[in-house]
Design a protein around this nucleic acid. Structure first.
Lengths: 205, 205, 205, 205
DNA sequence: AATGAATGAGGCTTCATTCAT
DNA sequence: TATGAATGAAGCCTCATTCAT
């Protein structure tokens, strides 16, 4: 009764994300997407002119919406707490949309329209919150005067490497890490590395 | 006279790397690979039973060969010098094989056989040199007692993020970095972050 | 108020004539016919069981109705006047129904049911007036003793060739003729050719 | 042994003419053309990029070739003999290619590229011989000073009406004519109609 | 060993027709 | 009665693979 009503179009998109993600765009068949969506093959084409249009629709504004909500309340919190919070929030977001994330990342290589849309709307925006925070901390003299674009991407890369490992490659087959411990270590290395060394100045070296 | 003779099989593999990399495995046609290799379509199937066999062969022993040669001579060098050297060596390797790297990374998602082969033979081995070095520095008390598997992957991730950006997504369209400067900053952050701090405390505070 | 009320069925037929005529029966879609008729796609099938039924209905009695009305009043007129009048009347009729004419003629080739209906009800009846007139003139000794079926069709063909050219092929692109002049020349050739010559001989030779 | 070798491409064209002619372009399926040609469906597309290309190829130069050969030797022959000869030659040509003729004529309505090609290369050229002959006879004062473009098409139409009747519509179902007798009557009407009335001039009217 | 013509299964897409509203 | 969303059969075309030369 209080079941969420999902539009036919969304039904098809959801199915497409699953199938594209598992087989790749070219490896997926419209027949399989239809089966997964529980509709007839022809129905797909009432909502999308071509198979490719389905793919392109997946990088549309709707996916970006969910990114806007991350307004970090950093007041009075330690850097550790803030960075940990941002990272966890981002990882949460990725996990919830892991199929879509893998799909867009992979197909962005082959479809220029998708690439631009994905990079501008998703990747750069996802990096934005972090970059802004780092920029402020540098301005306030608490972080070293590094390039904030480099610094933000460095942190993203540190975390991202483990996501790629786990979600794109072998899962937990070879190595698995406790997520909290992992993040703690990464943040520790990163923060120690990026913090201004104020009291060192006192050493005179 | 001492021109390198390339076997027919290698000719086809090289062509396949280029075409697969550009179009993806499913998007590439054997006809195009044949044209790129300068052989007839039928000829391909005298060397590979199926199209997929070509792909699988690309993650085979031969590609791994080139990874073995990186034996870093670290004696008497600073950590900065060693890490910079390792990173540059790895980046060099990736750049030389960027098509293959992109291809294997992408298709590993869709082909389990390829995935295992690629991860074990290429990724883990590529990380090995670094992991070993870090392990030694931790043992000698120069680095913090972090998990070396985490620490090595963290550094790989930091660097990798920029490679992914440049090679998978938008090239230099939005942001581009001077490579030497980039590596310098990353190594600085990383080393400051991972170095043991105990004796520092003893000196000044 | 005294606007002509057109039934839904007739609305659809009219639309079908236009669309079939432009795209051919197989090239036309029911969706386009519906749009042209200003009704929903499903509505069509409340009036016609199948798409083909629409086509078949177009050669039905209604179209034939309009042919009956051509009763030529030939009394006291010259042959030139009568033939010109018949030709013009027929051309008028064709022009008013050019889409339907093209359609029926074309599709008659592919649909036996349509072919018989079209040929019997339209073509033969259209030729009838002329054939009858010629027959009478032969009987009265004014025309040569040719086969009236041949003679009537010969005249139809002479005129028809120009209609076909103009309406089926290239319009006025290559050659265009003034219609009155064209008919005058055709009637002249035809009449001179078909008139009994006996008394001529008596006059001059 | 002395079997005529027909190229694959020609095999497919011949089959296409038969199938298109019977079902219309849109009504014909590539599968049926393949079956009729005795090849696999895929084979068709090694020779023609699209189904439509097959159709367009049928109005290509090759069909026009056969039209060139009609060089009428009119020296010393009567008009009756020459016209009869031209007509019979043309009818022969049409009969040999009746499927193609029907096809091109019909589809010319729906495919502009085909229409131009067909009209210029086939129709106008086919009318050319006759038009030229009539023009000469007018110049020499033997035919009336009619428009030769009109006069030639008038004759073509007279004959064509019977071809259309027989080949496009009902065959011999309703009426059939002895061809020699038919042509004789048509030529008689036509020639009488078009000949200059030299001695009439003597009448003084 | 190399070729490339031939194959036919299967993919994307269209469209006549049905049916719940 | 009218609608238009849904269906699924069928069409055009692609492409990995085979095989006679």
């Amino acid at each position: 009764m209080d079941r969420v009503i999902i539009s036919r179009e969304q039904q098809i998109k959801d199915a497409a994300i699953r199938v594209f993600s598992k087989k790749g765009f070219n490896g997926a068949t419209t027949k399989e997407i239809a089966r997964e969506a529980g509709v007839a093959e022809g129905t797909i084409f009432r909502y999308f002119r071509t198979k490719k249009d389905i793919l392109l629709s997946l990088a549309g504004p709707y996916i970006v919406e969910s990114l806007k909500t991350t307004l970090i309340n950093a007041a009075g919190k330690s850097d550790e707490a803030v960075l940990t919070s941002i990272i966890k929030n981002r990882l949460e977001l990725i996990k919830e949309n892991i199929d879509l994330a893998r799909l867009l990342f992979t197909e962005a290589q082959f479809h220029p329209e998708l690439r631009e849309n994905f990079t501008e709307n998703v990747v750069m925006r996802a990096a934005g919150v972090l970059e802004k925070y780092i920029d402020e901390r540098i301005s306030s003299g608490d972080f070293k005067a590094v390039d904030p674009r480099i610094a933000s991407r460095a942190l993203i890369g540190m975390v991202g490497a483990f996501v790629l490992w786990k979600e794109f490659l072998l899962g937990d087959k070879y190595i698995s890490f406790d997520e909290d411990e992992l993040i703690k270590q990464l943040v520790d290395i990163y923060l120690t590395g990026i913090r201004a060394e104020e009291w060192e100045g006192g050493m005179g070296s």
